[in-house]
Amino acid sequence: MKARVFVTLKNGVLDPQGKAIGHALNGLGFGAVGDVRAGKVIDLELHESNAEKARASVKEMCEKLLANTVIEKYEIELKA
């Protein structure tokens, strides 16, 4: 089973990197671009076939290491 974890800054936490990307895109002429938020994608291969167990385990990984929950939130996507 594979898991994809999206780690992004919580709403309300200033994202200077996203802001800089937004400015650069505006500078390139993409005037329609408003707020930009940047984040991380982490792909994991899991030796686990039970989706429920896999999700629980990845959630624990997020809480313990993959995300800093003071500033970040995470989403988990599982693929068989």
């Binding site: 200077p16 990197q17 800093n68 003071v70 500033i71």
Partner: peptide, 17 residues
């Protein structure tokens, strides 16, 4: 220390990058 939760909060990228 913040990552270990011995201190609260977090240290983020400098505001001007």
């Amino acid at each position: 220390l913040t990552e270990t939760h011995l201190l609260p909060g977090a240290l983020m990228r400098n505001a001007d990058l």
